[in-house]
């Protein structure tokens, strides 16, 4: 039998995997660079976040947990920055965002 604590860890891990998969599916299904940046950079953040939270919980209280939390903090700082850098570069290059009017153009 798993304890409640282990159950929580497993739940966190499952959530992490789920959002990781959502990020991958989003990357494949969404139509253009901007929408893909949504899918890839952020559901990914939560996926990685939940996985790291599971790791922190599994490690218990102590120094490794502090380090995992720091990892989380830096992940939450760097991920949006990277997404912003990519989309801004795209905007500077004049790439037009996909809109729902483009739907059905055989796109």
């Amino acid at each position: 039998m798993v304890t409640l604590y282990e159950g929580a860890i497993i739940a966190l891990l499952v959530g992490g995997v789920f959002f990781g998969i959502v990020a991958a599916v989003g990357l494949l299904r969404l139509p253009d660079l901007y929408t893909r940046a949504h899918g890839a950079s952020k559901t990914d953040t939560l996926g990685a976040g939940l996985s790291l939270a599971a790791a922190a919980a599994a490690l218990g209280s102590g120094l490794p947990t502090v380090k995992v939390v720091l990892l989380l903090v830096f992940l939450f700082l760097t991920n949006p920055t990277a997404a912003h850098a990519i989309t801004r570069a795209a905007a500077d290059q004049g790439i037009e965002p996909w809109t729902s009017e483009d739907r059905g153009d055989g796109e």
Partner: peptide
Amino acid sequence: TLTPGTLTVDVTRQHFTVHTL
């Protein structure tokens, strides 16, 4: 940007350009 569905594309001083899903 962290909040999914919204993505900051550019910021000039306080003027935000945000892509929303």
